[in-house]
Design a protein around this nucleic acid. Structure first.
Lengths: 221, 221
DNA sequence: ACGTGTGATTGATCTTAATCAATGCTTCTT
DNA sequence: AAGAAGCATTGATTAAGATCAATCACACGT
């Protein structure tokens, strides 16, 4: 949590987040319906979160990487409302929520920062709602790739070349599409030389045209 | 905000939320892009929030009624990320956010309650994502009606009979459907005697069958 | 190395919802 | 009260994506 804290405050925070946990690829960080006690800060790795309906329907609600915070949804009812699954070997810091609230009473800037993080999650969700509610398949995929690209870039990796950690089916679930549609959209973008797809490896050849794809469906046929 | 507060604490909170604002039908509580300073608690009325893309695309992200809190999305960047528009004459309490954070340092239960509210918004958004990502038109509308019904019920109104405040187009935007599709879905539910539709007035005739509609699309043809 | 299973691609067809279009009903304005 | 504007319904057609199906590529375990 990169906030403007002095060393004493960082010390306090460090006392709270001491416990680390490793999750192997495919392992669960938490299950839907289990008791919530801690938030989890991702130190390394890549996870997905997904909600499930009683009728077996499933929806991936997010893909999460280093530095992001998981478990915010569970604060309201103290029960996890989603599964969190590692898509590659991952490591998280456990942050007991009661303790976080406790020390945030003494570090106003920490509390404020926490509020911003929660708010950012709400903004992100609204963005996904816009995507799911009003975009075509290809626009959704372009938006998704650009989002990943930006997040890799922020973390010091290439924005033009990266490996997907998730399957086509998981991408489809996140984007509200079937896996075949995702696959076709990949192929289409490749045919247009906007990206190069080699299984899980993605190379962005023309960032600008990819950005155009996100915005307007009507300009290209 | 119904929390376990003592009278002294309620007094403190009252000092913060003193300012009230009336918004006439069609009026804006806030616009996208304007500076964020306050949250708004709805005292009465009915509002929608919607995000807009640069290309004019628009998505209703929520309908909000008495007791709900607006503006949470704006905490992260201190800029409103959506419009809030009154769908009927409404009244809100303005809650300067800086002051709320300040007093929540001295009232831990208030801070905790606020965290729960933010978390609940995240859970709600995940539910909408599930709806947009995996439900058919009729299921979406059934889910929507049941959600409204429950919220009216909680506020002491009939869960079986109520008036919609929004147009078919707004419902469609929220549900990721075109207005014609919404209209057809209404007609279909009416044909099956599950609801009675008279323009904006909705009567639920068979709550159980409506709930079935929400879950499984495959059971009825 | 070989067989197996999972994940990905591509094609053909079908379903759903979008689009285009016409009409009717309310509500607001003057 | 009459007209206009906005909102809603319904029908016909089209388009997007789902579904069904076949094949391929690759990773994994034995």
């Amino acid at each position: 949590m990169p906030v403007g804290l002095n060393s004493h405050e960082i010390q306090k925070l460090g006392d709270v987040v001491s416990h680390k946990r490793k999750i192997p690829r495919g392992g669960y960080l938490h299950h839907t319906g289990t008791k919530f006690q801690s938030l989890f800060a991702i130190r390394s790795g890549f996870l997905k979160t997904c909600v499930l309906e009683q009728d077996g329907r499933q929806q991936v609600t997010g893909f999460h990487m280093t530095g992001e915070l998981l478990g915010l949804d569970a604060i309201s009812s103290e029960i996890h409302t989603c599964d969190a699954v590692a898509l590659e070997d991952s490591e998280v810091c456990e942050i007991p929520f009661a303790k976080l609230e406790e020390i945030s009473l003494t570090i106003p800037s920490l509390m404020h920062h926490f509020h911003k993080i929660m708010s950012r999650e709400i903004v992100r969700d609204h963005g996904v709602m816009l995507l799911l509610g009003s975009m075509k398949a290809e626009e959704r995929l372009a938006t998704f790739l650009l989002n990943l690209s930006r997040r890799f870039s922020i973390r010091g990796y290439s924005e033009y070349s990266f490996n997907l950690r998730m399957t086509r089916e998981e991408i489809g679930s996140y984007l509200g599409l079937k896996l075949e549609t995702v696959s076709r959209a990949f192929s289409k973008l490749q045919d247009e030389n906007i990206i190069t797809v080699d299984n899980k490896h993605i190379q962005i050849n023309d960032m600008n045209r990819l950005k155009l794809k996100m915005g307007n469906s009507s300009c290209v046929t």
